[in-house]
Design a protein around this nucleic acid. Sequence first.
DNA 1: GACATACTATACAAAAAAGTCTTGATTATC
DNA 2: GATAATCAAGACTTTTTTGTATAGTATGTC
Lengths: 143, 143
Amino acid sequence: MKLSPLEEYGLRCLIQLARRGGVQPVTIRQISDGEGLSPAYVGKLMFLLQKADLVRSTRGVQGGYVLARPAREMTLNEVFQALDPGALEDVCGKFTGNNGAACVHDGSCSIKAVWKGLSERINGYLERVSVADLAQAPQLQEA
Amino acid sequence: MKLSPLEEYGLRCLIQLARRGGVQPVTIRQISDGEGLSPAYVGKLMFLLQKADLVRSTRGVQGGYVLARPAREMTLNEVFQALDPGALEDVCGKFTGNNGAACVHDGSCSIKAVWKGLSERINGYLERVSVADLAQAPQLQEA
DNA sequence: GACATACTATACAAAAAAGTCTTGATTATC
DNA sequence: GATAATCAAGACTTTTTTGTATAGTATGTC
């Protein structure tokens, strides 16, 4: 039950974009300097975020990245989904044990029900927190 | 934002113990057969669960494992903590980037506040679900 | 239109985690 | 008290994930 590095760092990059927040694109170099990450790694993160339509890129000399939408309308749920696809989903499909393709609990699977309830809770919380919340306040959000 | 295999499988083993629930110890072989896992792997899981005082073992011929406490008093929070220590904690200590030992956001770290809020939410939910809830009902718990 | 800047995409290496194996210790039964 | 059953603990291998490197494409400026 934890955040992956991709989720953590990707989120930070988005927050930095939101903070610099102008119309002027922010370059990978600027982001990587600001966050203490390698340019190559930031490139990969931005690639993932762009595929999920969270950032928009401009190439060439004055190029860089801007948020694709206002930070206020960008939820943590979307962000994590983009950076670690299929995380909170399909538990019974992933963990099947060695008995073959099907879950040994097939039919009366209680784990599935619990996990569903749990993931709904978590996603519910993540949907109520926007990137703007994080970008603006150093204080705890009581969303 | 996902469960690790250890958390998933370890939880299942506990549920199985709760279901068989007698005074008679359940052997590793029985658990591994029931869950479709290798005996060696179940051994490792039970080792972790015992260190956390969630199960109690008896050696020798009629040995095996029993729950250390009633399943009703055993929360998912404890279980996950036992199987993946330090998961929902200390994010800023773990992900520091390349700028050295300290988080580049030191001082005005908004991520830390957010993550704190998030982990409190999740733990709050996990504390309200017991192993007994999962062992008994195939339906969704609205805890 | 050549060149430098900057993103795009994939292949590769390194690190972490998962899962297996082996050796050892303990206990009931005969 | 010898034997078979069963857990204990750590070393080892395999797989997955993370992070890096590299080759390629687009664009603004001179």
